[in-house]
Every structure is written in structure tokens, then in C-alpha cells.
């Protein structure tokens, strides 16, 4: 389904909000730097870095790809053992 607005209209509408949200992220990361202690080894920080990298890529579907960064992995073969265990219990 096409978006009724053209690209220039979308940018006009969204620019200030995107700018504000980027600043909010930048300020939060600065706040982390200024705080005592270290979270360098925290996996959440790695995920934030991965998400920020996706934002700079030209490829689309950024929202979906960032969702996957913040998701636990899924094992497509889980159902077989689950059904077997359920039948035996």
C-alpha cells in the first residue's frame, strides 16, 4: 500500500522529532559515560551499538532488524522434543 505523503513531506513532518530522539539517545549515552562504574561488559550495551549501526545502513526494514537485535533466539526444532515429553508425562 503506498504512503499518501511523498518523501519530502515525510521528512518535513518527521525531521524535528527524529532530531529530538537522536539527541535523547546521544544524551543517554553521554550520561552513561559520566556515571561512575563501568558497564562495558554488559550485553545490553552491545545490543545498543548493533542497533545504532543498523540506523546508519542504507538497507530498509531497519525497525524489523533492530527488533531482532533485541530478541532472544528461536529454535525451530523445539516442538518435537516438547511433544514427546508431553506424551510421556
Amino acid at each position: 500500500m503506498p504512503i499518501p505523503l511523498d518523501a519530502e513531506e515525510v521528512l518535513n513532518r518527521e525531521f524535528l522529532e527524529v532530531r529530538a530522539r537522536l539527541l535523547q539517545v546521544a544524551a543517554a549515552l553521554d550520561r552513561l559515560d559520566r556515571a561512575s562504574g563501568s558497564v562495558e561488559a554488559d550485553a545490553r550495551l552491545t545490543k545498543i551499538s548493533q542497533a545504532l549501526a543498523i540506523l546508519t545502513e542504507a538497507e530498509g526494514d531497519r525497525a524489523e532488524r533492530i527488533q531482532h537485535v533485541f530478541s532472544r533466539p528461536y529454535d525451530a526444532k523445539w516442538l518435537g522434543p516438547f511433544k514427546k515429553e508431553r506424551m510421556n508425562s
Binding site: 527488533q67 530478541s71 532472544r72 533466539p73 528461536y74 525451530a76 523445539w78 516442538l79 511433544k83
Partner: peptide, 16 residues
């Protein structure tokens, strides 16, 4: 973080 895995598991059970 549980949504993707959980949704896929739910779909597996429904489709089974």
C-alpha cells in the same frame, strides 16, 4: 526480548 521466540513457538503449536 521474549516476543520473537514466543510468537514463533505459539505459531508452531497452533499450526501443529
Amino acid at each position: 526480548e521474549d516476543k520473537y521466540q514466543g510468537t514463533r513457538m505459539i505459531l508452531d503449536m497452533l499450526c501443529d
